[in-house]
Design a protein around this nucleic acid. Sequence first.
DNA 1: TAAGCCATTGTAAACGTTTGTGTAAAGTGC
DNA 2: GCACTTTACACAAACGTTTACAATGGCTTA
Lengths: 332, 332
Amino acid sequence: MAATIKDIAKLAGVSTATVSRVLANKSAFFSEATATKVHAAATELGYQKNTAAAELVTRHSNVIAAVVNSTKTNFASQIIEGIQAEAHQHELNVIILYAGDADSAQQRRALMTVIERPVMGILLLSVDLAPENLTLLQGSQVPYCFLSISFDGERLPYITSDDWQVGYQATQALIKQGHRRIGLAGVDRDFHTGRQRVLGYTQALQDAGITPKAEWIQLGNYSYDAGQAAMQAYGAQTELTAIVGASDMAAIGVMNQARDLGLLVPADLSIVAIDGTELCSLVQPQLTSVSQNFYEMGIAGVQQLRSIETLPQKITPIKLVNRQSVRMLSPE
Amino acid sequence: MAATIKDIAKLAGVSTATVSRVLANKSAFFSEATATKVHAAATELGYQKNTAAAELVTRHSNVIAAVVNSTKTNFASQIIEGIQAEAHQHELNVIILYAGDADSAQQRRALMTVIERPVMGILLLSVDLAPENLTLLQGSQVPYCFLSISFDGERLPYITSDDWQVGYQATQALIKQGHRRIGLAGVDRDFHTGRQRVLGYTQALQDAGITPKAEWIQLGNYSYDAGQAAMQAYGAQTELTAIVGASDMAAIGVMNQARDLGLLVPADLSIVAIDGTELCSLVQPQLTSVSQNFYEMGIAGVQQLRSIETLPQKITPIKLVNRQSVRMLSPE
DNA sequence: TAAGCCATTGTAAACGTTTGTGTAAAGTGC
DNA sequence: GCACTTTACACAAACGTTTACAATGGCTTA
């Protein structure tokens, strides 16, 4: 149905080889005269290149696949923007796939659609791959890199923030303002990222001579609901004066629940969020955060895929952004 | 490098045709014995199918491309979930592309990467295609459908809410609570969607015997900033008692700016948002909204692509969701 | 004028699949 | 034991490109 280079060749009275060369602009391989003939024929036929066919023979693609764990996590968009920016600089195209939230079957589906097609590389944004899917990924010949997630033992390529530092600095920011009874809400200790954040949090407290109680840490999956549940668990009479939200969403959950319990932020309760997406400045009061550089992560991810030798791990910087959710505690 | 069906054929001692049929599970075309041989060989070689090659010969693909206008608009994720759900039911896969915000070059890039490859159809989420890119899209043989956007004259296939009704119902909801001086903030009158919302808004006022002043309508691009700017234009001394935000983001912008101007929501100013994404229940007070059924839009979009005959336009339902940002105005 | 070179173009193989057609062997009914 | 059907497989063409190699012809140079 659609026009092919064969049709163009016939119409222009040349061979398909010449058409291919003209269209690919392999100059010094054709004359001006034929070039114009070919181009005229191409536009007349409304030719659309079939890249799949071309990729089949050249065995090389220019699309990067970004696999995202869920539509719910909002930081993904910042990473994707970084990916796009860097990719476009190098004439690469980006496609995005959603892999669902801890849904092995959907992960597999997303992975399959990219592995089975020619892609130049795969970026996995904060996705906890099920073991069988990891095997799948490794079995394919496609280069890959995890973003915004880290791993313990296995030597997987990843780019992320220093999660220990994230936990440490969020906690320390509160300590510096005089807080000593500080909670950590909505963190997931099943994975490396969460474990590191807990470790950083604990160390910051210990460095200030504080021994955290077990109930100060409320586990969860970084979601709004997890933040809410954590705050419910702390209760209106909590001894805590400050809470670190494991994510922006969790922090907002904490804040809204605190309000429902009659606690004012930051008057009664200070909050530091982890992530620092635009959500932090949308809510009232705006949330002070330990902000990750997601955009940079995206850029680094593309660079990692492009580099031959695989420098396996990389850490992107974080910074504390002061907004309105932390108050200085007067020492009593 | 990677194993092909040729390798499997050699290892299993059969022809590639047989391998293909076994792998595609075209039963009644092979015996149990060969099937097991082939499967054994396939796993031994770590075979990964090259779908691009298969699609080349079958001339038919099972991936749907969703083109999104920007990473910024948050409702997209709900549409995408709808798309995924419906697509997966029919063994279709979904890839997502970002087309940038009113950036013709990036639109073109996104469009090209999908048109040049075998895709089964293209869904365009709220993207205002530049004229040249629309021509491009129409020139390709790929079926397509616009989502969450509508058009005036041209007969383009689209699925969206009734934007006139959206404007009407949002305004009417405020009128019913006794408001008579009502603004509309952040709406874009350059496109059909925005124009319809303005028309609905105006009609609702007129039906209540109210003649809207020109300055009640503040134009913008549906963004947080647009909402903020609109509220700044209204000013602290505004005669308005209520405002319709052209989107969730715009409504939040209005609300936060109002607070900065010393106005309390909803005590001094009532707000109705348009869209009704989860953002509405994240902020404080939670925003009353005219909610669109984005999930349903995604489902309908996939169905539209799958149906041969193209029933060009479809309207998805909306509903008013009462939350906390509107107060009843006592008649004086 | 022959040899050599360069610019331009064509020929054909290859990429990894699917599938229509052909065919040998095995099974069926009489 | 014959004609027939069925089963199970192989052969080869096709999809739309790219590209190595060959071929052509004109031009330069000695």
